[in-house]
Simulated scan of single mutants.
Amino acid sequence: MKLQKPLKVAMFLAIGVGLAACGNRGGSVSVADAPPTDDGIIANNPETAALSYEKSSIWDVFGPNKSEQTGNVNRYLWAASLDVLNFLPLQSADPFTGVIITGYGTPPGGGRSYRATVHIKDPALEARSLSVALQTSGGRPVSAATARAVEDAILSRARQMRIADDKL
């Protein structure tokens, strides 16, 4: 049996309305089930215990997204952190809380191995939004100048990424 055109349109609209009703209307997500980390940053941070989604339905996915952030994390800082520290093995990454934890690895041209913990605290693309803690394989923290140099490299890369996006 061949369906008439108005009946096909009505079925299509009914399916679309049904999918739109499945959207998350201001619900929240708990990070209590997040995997525990060595320093407990994810589980013990009360500011990130519940996160709200800004998208409310399936139709919002098709709209433009010019935002620099996803939740409480600046997307350029997040991507730049992963890019700059790509020589370190990734142990844990939570884009909702802004925490990246790496394992020990040796930088290119270096002889000593390091591990890093990066915390992106704010959605702004600013130095105050980024905190990097580096540790040597012996468990000792590195100098403040070395940590600051890594932060500067991440911030520079994030700005380059933002400029490249503006050109598109």
Rank of each mutant, 00 (worst) to 15 (best):
P35L: 15
P35Y: 10
P36D: 12
D39C: 04
D39S: 14
I41A: 14
A43Q: 14
N44L: 12
N45I: 00
N45K: 02
P46C: 00
E47L: 04
A50Q: 15
S52M: 10
S57L: 02
S57Q: 09
G63C: 07
G63R: 15
P64F: 05
S67E: 14
T70N: 13
G71H: 05
N72T: 09
L77H: 07
L77Y: 06
W78H: 05
W78L: 03
A80L: 02
S81V: 06
D83Q: 15
D83T: 13
V84Y: 03
L85H: 11
F87N: 07
F87S: 09
F87T: 06
L88C: 07
L88A: 08
S92V: 12
S92H: 12
S92D: 08
S92N: 12
T97G: 07
T97W: 01
G98L: 00
G98R: 00
V99I: 01
V99P: 05
I100W: 04
I101Q: 15
I101N: 12
I101W: 01
T102E: 04
G103M: 00
G103S: 05
G103E: 08
Y104N: 14
Y104A: 06
G105W: 00
T106C: 03
P107Q: 05
S113V: 01
T117S: 12
T117Y: 06
H119K: 13
I120A: 08
P123S: 03
A124N: 13
A124D: 13
A124R: 14
L125V: 03
A127I: 02
S129V: 00
L130V: 07
V132T: 07
A133I: 01
L134M: 15
